[in-house]
Nucleic acid binder design. Structure first.
Lengths: 159, 159
DNA sequence: GGGTGAATACTCGGATATGGCCTGTCCGAGTTGACGCGG
DNA sequence: CCGCGTCAACTCGGACAGGCCATATCCGAGTATTCACCC
């Protein structure tokens, strides 16, 4: 149960985009970390569908953040890439055991399902409490030149 | 990123075993929930390797809990089936970006990696705080006849 | 010189192959209990 | 009747296929810019 590779790419790319207010094409964003452009594009499309990024076609087009960085949580990004499903999926095997009741939804009544759901919620809460803006502030405190360096490198890759 | 099917089987099987103090063969445990015996066996082997179950070969053999139910957390079971890896795997793409430093381990210094690690820890803590004994107490409170029903059904399947 | 039209280059977007892990199954090694035989 | 040795059945354990999702890629649809041509 490993998380998709694309999540890491999406996180860092969103941070970089938060330092740029003009659309940046996939090719440039991919070159920034030497990633496969076509595959990164797939991830960015998912972010766009989720309303995290907005896309522009044609020359001078690309992706940019659709909302303020404060309004983009890590949970949003993970959900956009990985989908909305919970980590634990209850298949209700209790329906096959003794003491089964036809009308019961064991996703609600099964004690294991409840416990796994609580853990899932703790994970999601932690992710939802962290925004791209928070990460950005953290990074800028430790590396004050990061925004300028990023903008410069993006400009170089554009040429 | 969905959790393996075997986790649900392992959880319920461990609970059932906590009500029985004699070895139960895979075939009986599988019939209890109408699961494929050979595949359930694979999961139980993983639990045995993790020290959660102990196995006995030959006639009257099978699996039983290796520790007291209080000493078996949901985290132990999940880790035994899914492996010890974290949900988020940091591939350190920052090594490919500008401002890279050769000797730096970005699994420690990257702010995203840290945040994802915190969320992972919250999830694991919640799972580690819940034991099979706790679930069992919960179930027995809501369904007092569950232990007797389970033992009876297991005895039937043995014949 | 200004406006208009087509051509062009650039970008996203979804449709299309490939590989690895989860799922599912099978057969062999080891062990225990049972049974029969001999004392 | 009791003890011992062989036998047989049962169980775990790891080795062996199949299917699905993550990975990786390509090409077509749409658009803004650019350029040339005409008025």
């Amino acid at each position: 149960m490993r998380m998709s590779q694309g999540v890491e790419w999406a996180l860092h790319t969103c941070l970089n985009l938060s330092w740029l207010d003009v659309p940046v094409p996939t090719s440039v964003l991919a070159a920034f970390y030497e990633l496969p452009p076509a595959y990164l594009n797939k991830q960015l499309q998912a972010l766009a569908r989720a309303g995290i990024l907005s896309s522009t076609s044609g020359p001078a087009g690309g992706f940019r953040l659709a909302r303020e960085p404060e309004q983009v949580s890590l949970m949003d990004i993970v959900a956009a890439i990985e989908g909305p499903d919970e980590l634990f999926r209850c298949d209700q095997i209790l329906r096959q055991g003794p003491g089964k009741h036809a009308g019961v939804d064991y996703r609600d009544s099964c004690a294991f399902s409840q416990a796994m759901h609580r853990a899932d919620l703790a994970w999601r809460s932690e992710l939802a409490a962290t925004s791209v803006a928070g990460i950005r502030a953290n990074v800028e405190r430790q590396h004050p030149k990061a925004p300028a360096n990023t903008r410069e490198r993006i400009a170089e890759l554009r040429r």
